[in-house]
Amino acid sequence: MNTQTSAAAVAVAGVAAAVPGLALENVTCTFRAAAGKGGYTAVKDVNLTVGAGEFVSVVGPTGCGKSTLLNVSAGLLEPSSGTVKVFGEPLVGMNRHAGYMFQAESLMPWRTALDNVIVGLEFRGVARNEAVARGQDWLQRVGLGSHGHRYPHQMSGGMRKRAALAQTLIMDPKIILMDEPFSALDIQTRQLMENELLDIWSADRKSVLFITHDLEEAISLSDRVIVLSAGPGTHPIGEFAIDLPRPRDVSEVRLTPEFVRLHDEIWHTMKEEVLKGYVQSQQK
């Protein structure tokens, strides 16, 4: 692995934490082929850590295995080999510390926005009126304060994403996994949500593993950006510490020369892989 910045240096630069919140160790995922023998190795020998309280973004070409890595981290998918450690403990079954915001639609169509937001509290056995109060508060924070009564089909794609965000964050997870959460939003709303996310994150430093296609978004939010190679056999090919000062405003930070330099540097590594990924996705 030709990491630009070693993981050790990052740990020193970042929050002082001995045990990472999330660590993937030599994770390989091979999907069984639909017909008989063979299979597709989506990710191979991936080592990836998210320190406690660290914000890590993963960028990579489409179809390379980003969602697969998140599914492994959430405990939804068992890796073919390798281990996942959550605060130092090997993960068995579901990851109880993680909240996961999916790439695909994940709201229950038969529940209103409010009922969707509080469903996790319901599972936990929180009393209904307390759950509703907290749900209202979260709807407010994602800008859906007056839309709690709507069913998913009565909301726009962006509103559904915001409801899903509230649904994940209301559980107060220690590790937040996010799969392209804001790609459905317009640029203004998106920056609002990004700032909101940074606020929430800096209030009580959770470990965030954030997936995006958008390099600017990755840089402006993260402590560290990881670049993945194109599939098959995806693995990290670059790791960049983002030492822009915090607190950041996502729209302002983009104008700083330091940002532009980082962007150029990372894009240089990514460019080839993006082209490879595109060619491969056409061949498949």
């Binding site: 599914n71 959430a74 939804l76 579901m94 990851n95 109880r96 993680a98 909240g99 996961y100 999916f102 695909a104 639609e105 994940s106 229950m108 469903v119 996790g120 319901e122 599972f123 936990r124 649904q167 559980m171």
Partner: peptide
């Protein structure tokens, strides 16, 4: 939808809650 099921499980649903919700 498998995503719906996965989401409920991540949010902490046990088998009975999964059946009900």
């Amino acid at each position: 939808s498998p995503v719906l099921l996965a989401n409920a499980r991540v949010l902490g649903a046990n088998a009975r809650q999964l059946l009900r919700t």
